[in-house]
């Protein structure tokens, strides 16, 4: 069972994505901030992280950088989910090694499709 980590500080988004991933049959972990997210990544090494950018303690870019800068972790696929929709923000996400950058609000159906594809390719 593939492990997926969902990181977002908004409880309703977290709740929704957790529901969807579980229904898809993934092993879902959730984190409400950057610190929690780093802990879970370290301990569980998920196959994919759905990552919000703006969070209270650290931003999603820093987490992505941490993942991609670590040999043991860099295989983890990162999908940014963010309200930041500027071209430069998106570019920055891809530059840091993200597999996908999805701007909010998004279609849950499309998102799930993309996640499936990404995990199938791995």
């Amino acid at each position: 069972m593939k492990k997926i980590l969902v990181v977002d500080d908004d409880p309703y988004i977290l709740m929704s994505l957790e529901f969807l991933m579980k229904k898809e049959g993934f092993d879902v972990k959730v984190a409400r901030n950057g610190t929690e997210a780093l802990d879970i990544i370290q301990q569980e090494t998920p196959a994919l992280v759905l990552l919000d950018i703006m969070m209270p303690d650290m931003d999603g870019y820093a987490i992505c950088k941490h993942i991609k800068g670590n040999k043991k972790l860099q295989h983890i696929k990162v999908v940014f989910l963010s309200a930041k929709s500027k071209e430069s923000d998106i570019q920055k996400g891809y530059d840091l090694g993200a597999s996908l950058y999805v701007t909010k609000p998004f279609s849950t159906r499309d998102l799930m499709k993309k996640v499936r594809e990404l995990l199938a390719a791995a």
């Binding site: 908004d10 988004i13 929704s16 309200a83 701007t103 609000p105 849950t108 159906r109």
Partner: peptide, 15 residues
Amino acid sequence: ELRTPLTSIRAMAEI
């Protein structure tokens, strides 16, 4: 600022 609640609403409604 609008996107965040909108995202939640859409996601929950779709679910």
